[in-house]
Amino acid sequence: MDFASWLISTVSRALAFGVPLLWGTLGEIYAERAGVVNLGVEGMMILGAFMAFAVSQSTGHPGLGLFCAALIGGVAALLHAFVTVTIRANQYVSGLALSMFGLGLAGLLGRGWEGKPLGNTLPTLTIPGLSRIPVLGPMLFQDQTILTYLGIFLAVVLWLLLFRTRWGLAIRSVGENPSTADSLGINVTLVRYLCVFFGGLLAGVGGGYLSVAYRPAWTEGMTAGMGWIVIALTIFAAWDPLQALWGAFFFGALYHLSYRLQAYLAPELLKLMPYLFAIVVLAISGLGGARWRRRAPGALGLPYVRGER
């Protein structure tokens, strides 16, 4: 295979594989910007994947499937929000539990659906005009679903919302210093609930994409650890939606390359690659990122209690 076609397919697949990572990461960025770590991404994604598949299969509408996937992700996230924001339990423990719970529940519900291919998948698009540009056309404007472009658009919108609007200012302040936000009349609980819920919605869509578009079938555990990569990407992206774009597609490329290299390396080793890379990337961003901008939100992981010193 010549280099051009190799490059085209790598970039095109990186985009396709990066989509669930992107959606999940954008959601997690919002939750964490408001100060809530949600390690339940893996669970929310797998629930979304199952829900999207089941609804699409039953109704024949993958769009409706994705909508329901978002909802179930959001509901699962609300559970996390209730436990961590209202009851103020440990966010890490609650998130891990949510991941395990989601994997288990999806496995249980999905028993009868295991291995069935999906009849009606999310259509891939060929953008008229643009797709005929040499190299760039097949790279970027063919064989992608609407979620690729929607995800990129969302990243830009979410960046603008976070850094250029009143709402974004409130979200960031709640994540940095909730007592200050509280003293200025911001409803800390509400902001946190909304952000965690929103994170769940996006994680659900990310999971749904896997079962109705990327690999249109239901297999137990089909998210295969993507939720954990999302957690690492959130840090790698320095809680910035635009940087999440590069991160997600970079990891998408890694996933894809690990399939490509199957002929040469042990498959177990290749499956390890994204995780190994996640560790390396975190170590690098931890060492090199002494600057304040790269730092985590100040109140990340801490429950807020009014009036505590």
Partner: peptide, 13 residues
């Protein structure tokens, strides 16, 4: 909010 600018701190809420 220490990482935010002066204007952002004043604009909050």
């Amino acid at each position: 909010v220490l990482p935010h600018t002066v204007a952002e701190n004043v604009a909050l809420g």
